[in-house]
Amino acid sequence: MNYVEPSSITELMNYVTTVEDYRCLAGGATLVAMMNVGLVEPELLISLHKLDELKGMRIDQNVIRIGAMTTHTAITDEDRLTGNASLVRSAAGQIAHSAVRNMGTIGGAISHADPSADFPAALTAANATIEVLGPSGRRVIQIDDFFVNYLETSLTEKEIVMAIMVPLSPADAIGHHLKFSRVDGDYATVSVSLALAMEGRICSYARIAVGSVAAVPLRLKEADDILIGSNLEESEIARASELLLKSSDPIDDVRGSSSYRKFLIPRLIRQAVLQSKKELSYT
């Protein structure tokens, strides 16, 4: 295996277009683990850590642009992630453990596209867009179109994630990532990500995504629409949950059986919505 550290995008594109069997190395928290157990062994490992364009966060027109190489710790500590974007901060702080959060990156996490991981669901609920770059240039992918299947994204061959754009608005929204896992720091058995805003007693904005219950984060516009305009009464939350539950298709694995995951879905949604509603009533 060869290892390179391109320091410019041109140099990076040169490697990805000329080498067939390569992998891009972000934080390494997942890729190096996969290499250690022999699942992947690329001819060329391209480290992204010298590419300044992939680093840092900046706000432009009410949207925060998070560089792909931003670590989970940097996101957890970022106090500009407010309103709708606070959801992303909430999720980042719940990923694995400190030593992994110091290494792992948001770009790496979404490129891996594990539906049990925290960022796929959180970024779906946060209505993010993904900026990607390939040999034919840059494009932007809406988060609902980014995850395609288990460990599969809509990135075409040779494309890499450059940044994740998260709208700060609604500014009065609060975001929660509610995660149920058997062991602290593990992948979720089920997670519920939610951005919610209210005007008086009426829900003015809602976007829910459920993680770890299907091949991709589960989001239904119809479920959000039940909540928007409602008073977020128990019956309305139950109707929205029912729709999401019907569309779920969880697998059996060490973190829980399919039926157990289905048992959790409405309960966690209810808890997430009620918790957010309560918090909003105090602000």
């Binding site: 290892y3 390494g28 928290a29 190096v32 683990a33 250690n36 453990h97 030593a99 110091n102 290494m103």
Partner: peptide, 27 residues
């Protein structure tokens, strides 16, 4: 464990703790 679960390999890299089994020396 060599896959980032057990924590026995923790070291500090630039002042922050990391898993040294998931970090390559060249990095």
């Amino acid at each position: 464990c060599e896959h980032g679960v057990c924590g026995a390999c923790v070291v500090k890299l630039d002042g922050k703790i990391v898993r040294s089994c998931l970090t390559l020396a060249v990095q």
